[in-house]
Design a protein around this nucleic acid. Structure first.
Length: 599
RNA sequence: GGCCCGGUAGUUCAAUGGAUAGAAUAGAAGUUUCCUAAACUUUAGAUACAAGUUCGAUUCUUGUCCGGGCUACCA
C-alpha cells in the first residue's frame, strides 16, 4: 500500500475511533504532499471535519496528530497550520522502504489478473505514408497498452488496416497511368512513399481534368463527377469488389509495398502489434448484424431499400447502415469488426485510439451495438485524442502541409547528432554506438514531446521550431539516468544489484532534505502508475519522471556519493540513485523511450 | 442551427474541491580546482468574462465571448 493510502486509512480509522458517533467516510479524508514552505511531508486537510465534529482546527489537529503518532510507526511529529495537519514521516520509514524495494525491477506493477483488453491503434490507410498526426496515435496507443499491462491486465495490441476503398484505387489508377512500372526497387523510394506519391498524382490529374471540363462549359459539380480519372477509379473499385484478378493483383502488389514501408517505420519507432485486422477481410461482416437488427425491429428500411437506425430518442440523428444498393458503409463494417474482436479474444474492454474528430462516430457505434443487444457494446471505449495542428491550422495533404513521419524521425536524429557534437560529448563511443545514441535521443525527444500532453487536448506543432532537447524533455531524463550510471560505474556498483550488497542500513544520521525528498517521490511511483492506467494518460508518467529527474539533479548538486560523509550515507545515497535510475527506466520504458547508460 | 471538446505566464504544458496556481522555455543575474554544466541556483511574469454552490473554485453549475471538431447513401 502506498504511503498516501496508508495515511488516509490511518486518519480515517483514527477519526472513527475518536468520534464513534460521527459519520466519517473514507472520501472525506484528503491527504496531500505538504507544501515546501511548511514543516512536514504529508498533510491531512481538517476542514471537512470541523463542522461535522464541531471542533476547532487546533484541537482536532492535535487530537488526530497525537493519535496517529501513538498508534502508528509512521510519523516522527506533526504541526498544525490553519486547518492543515502536517505530518513528518520517520526517517526509518524511508530507510526500510529503500532497502525493501531498491532492486525490485517491477516496483509499482500489479499482479496479473484475468482482465482482457484490446488496444487498437495506428490503423492507417494504405494509400499514403504515416504523418505526424499518426505518430501521436501510435505512441499513445503503444504506451497505454504497456501501462495497462504493467497494471496486471492482459493486453492485445491490434492494428486495423484500412486496405480497401476508393482512396486505395486512386493510387492504383494513377500508378497504372503514370508510373511506367516503377517499383520501390527500381526507384529506391520507400514503398509507402511511392504509393503516396501516386495518390498525390491522382489528385493533381483530377484537378486538371475538372478544370478542363469546366473550361468547356461544364458545371463544377458535374465536372467533378465526369472527370475520366475519377470514373476510372470508381470502375476499378467495382472490379475490386467483383474480385477481378488483374485488379486484385495490382492491389496486393501495391499494398505489399506499403506494408513493407510501414514495417520499417514501426520498427524504427519501436512499436509492435499482436494482431492485424484487414478491412478487406472484415468489411462485409456487419451485414449479418444488420439483418438480425431488422428482424428484431431495431432497424428500419426506407422506401428506396436503404437501412437505418433511429437514434433521435438518444439525442442523435438517424444513421444509415446499408445503402439502397445493399452495400455497406463505414459504420456497418465497424459493427462487424467490433463483434469479431470480441469473439476472437473474449474481451472485457476494447479500446479504440482514434482522433476526436470521430467522437460522434464512436458514440453511435457503441449505441447501435447496445441496441442490437451485442455483449461487446459495454466494453467499447473510445480513447479520444486531440489532433496535432500546425500554427496555420490543420495539416492538409492537398495543400502539402503534412509533416511526414519518416522525415520527422530523420530530422530528430539529425538534431540529436548536432546537439551531441555541439556539447562535445562524442568521445569514448564507437561510430556504431553513436548512431544508436542519436536514435535513442532523437526518438526519445519525439515520443516525449507527443506523450507529455494530456491526450484529449489538441496540440500545436511548429515545424519551423525544432523539438527542444532541453527542459521538459526526454533528454533531460536520459541525462539524469546517464549520470547515475556513471556514478555507479565509478563506484563499482552494478546497475541492478542483488540485495546482498545492502543488507543492513543503520541510520545514525538524520536524512537531509534532498535525501528525503528523493525518497518521498520514489515511494509515490506505484500510485502514479496506477493513475496513468486509470486515466489512460502516459503524460502522467512523463510528468512524474521529469519531476524525479529534476529532484535527482538537484540532489546530485548538493550531495556527493563518492565523497559521502561516512559509509552509512554512501550506502543510503547509492540506494537512492539505484532506485531512481530503475524507476526512470521503468516509467520511460512503458512510454517506449530508452535511457542510455552513457551520453 | 443542434451536439461535443477546449480557453492558465510572451510561448509550450501542470495542478483527486485545499495553503501564496506549479514547471519548462524565451528574458535578467549568478555557479566548473569537486561523482557528466545536455546540469544547478536566484529573479520577473498567468486562471477569457460574469454570476452561483462551498469554510475554500483553475477544478462543480449556469450564462456570455473566443477557438476547434462533428452534424454525408465519404472512409
Amino acid at each position: 500500500m502506498t504511503l498516501i493510502a496508508q495515511i488516509k486509512k490511518a486518519a480515517e480509522d483514527a477519526l472513527k475511533h475518536l468520534f464513534p458517533e460521527a459519520e466519517i467516510t473514507a472520501g472525506m479524508v484528503a491527504v496531500n504532499q505538504t507544501k515546501p514552505e511548511f514543516t512536514g511531508d504529508y498533510t491531512v486537510v481538517l476542514f471537512p471535519f470541523l463542522k461535522l465534529l464541531r471542533q476547532k482546527p487546533d484541537i482536532l489537529g492535535s487530537q488526530l496528530g497525537n493519535y496517529l503518532l501513538e498508534k502508528t510507526e509512521l510519523f516522527s511529529g506533526f504541526e498544525i497550520v490553519s486547518g492543515f495537519l502536517n505530518l513528518s514521516v520517520r526517517d526509518t520509514y524511508w530507510a526500510s522502504f529503500l532497502q525493501n524495494h531498491f532492486n525490485d525491477l517491477h516496483f509499482g506493477e500489479k499482479t496479473k489478473k484475468d482482465r482482457r483488453i484490446m488496444v487498437e491503434y495506428s490503423s492507417p490507410n494504405t494509400n499514403k505514408p504515416l504523418h505526424f498526426g499518426h505518430l501521436r496515435n501510435i505512441f499513445l496507443g503503444y504506451a497505454v497498452a504497456e501501462i495497462l499491462k504493467a497494471n496486471g491486465n492482459q493486453v492485445v495490441k491490434a492494428n486495423l488496416i484500412n486496405d480497401r476503398g476508393i482512396h486505395i484505387c486512386k493510387s492504383m489508377i494513377a500508378w497504372e497511368r503514370y508510373a511506367n512500372g516503377a517499383t520501390p526497387e527500381t526507384t529506391g523510394i520507400k514503398g509507402d512513399h511511392l504509393v503516396g506519391d501516386y495518390y498525390v498524382r491522382f489528385n493533381d490529374a483530377y484537378k486538371e481534368e475538372v478544370a478542363a471540363l469546366k473550361a468547356h462549359g461544364m458545371e463544377e459539380a458535374q465536372a467533378e463527377k465526369e472527370a475520366p480519372i475519377m470514373k476510372d477509379a470508381q470502375e476499378m473499385l467495382r472490379k475490386w469488389e467483383a474480385s477481378d484478378a488483374d485488379v486484385r493483383d495490382l492491389w496486393e502488389t501495391m499494398n505489399g509495398w506499403v506494408y513493407k514501408g510501414f514495417d520499417e517505420s514501426y520498427q524504427k519507432l519501436g512499436v509492435d502489434f499482436d494482431k492485424m485486422y484487414y478491412e478487406s477481410d472484415t468489411y462485409l461482416l456487419g451485414k449479418n448484424l444488420v439483418e438480425e437488427g431488422l428482424q428484431k425491429g431495431v432497424l428500419f428500411t426506407k422506401e428506396n431499400g436503404s437501412v437505418w437506425i433511429d437514434l433521435t430518442a438518444d439525442g442523435l440523428d438517424e444513421k444509415l447502415l446499408l445503402r439502397a444498393d445493399g452495400t455497406s458503409v463505414y459504420m456497418t463494417q465497424d459493427l462487424g469488426t467490433a463483434k469479431l474482436k470480441y469473439n476472437d479474444y473474449k474481451l472485457d474492454e476494447s479500446i479504440y485510439v482514434i482522433a476526436d474528430e470521430q467522437n460522434y462516430h464512436m458514440q453511435v457505434l457503441k449505441l447501435i451495438l447496445k441496441k442490437l443487444g451485442e455483449p461487446c457494446a459495454d466494453g467499447i471505449y473510445h480513447l479520444s485524442y486531440g489532433m496535432v495542428e500546425l500554427p496555420s491550422g490543420r495539416m492538409k495533404s492537398r495543400e502539402g502541409t503534412v509533416v511526414d513521419a519518416d522525415d520527422m524521425i530523420d530530422e530528430m536524429i539529425r538534431l540529436s547528432k548536432e546537439q551531441t557534437e555541439l556539447a562535445g560529448k562524442t568521445e569514448g563511443f564507437t561510430q556504431e554506438e553513436l548512431e544508436k545514441l542519436y536514435e535513442t535521443i532523437g526518438l526519445g525527444a519525439l515520443k516525449f514531446y507527443l506523450l507529455r500532453v494530456d491526450p484529449k487536448k489538441k496540440m500545436i506543432f511548429d515545424p519551423k521550431e525544432s523539438i527542444d532537447l532541453h527542459g521538459f524533455t526526454a533528454t533531460f531524463i536520459q541525462y539524469a539516468h546517464a549520470r547515475i550510471c556513471s556514478i555507479l560505474r565509478k563506484e563499482g556498483c552494478p546497475l541492478r544489484p542483488d540485495s546482498t550488497k545492502f543488507q543492513s542500513l543503520s541510520l545514525s544520521h538524520a536524512l537531509t532534505q534532498g535525501e528525503k525528498q528523493l525518497a518521498l517521490i520514489l515511494e509515490q511511483y506505484p500510485g502514479i502508475l496506477e493513475a496513468a492506467a486509470e486515466e489512460m494518460n502516459p503524460g502522467t508518467l512523463c510528468n512524474y519522471s521529469f519531476q524525479l529527474a529534476q529532484q535527482f539533479n538537484s540532489f546530485y548538486d548538493g550531495h556527493s556519493i563518492a565523497k559521502a560523509e561516512n559509509e552509512e550515507k554512501k550506502q543510503l545515497r547509492l540506494l537512492l540513485i539505484i532506485m531512481t535510475a530503475s524507476i526512470l527506466r521503468h516509467a520511460m520504458h512503458l512510454c517506449g523511450i530508452r535511457l542510455p547508460e552513457k551520453m
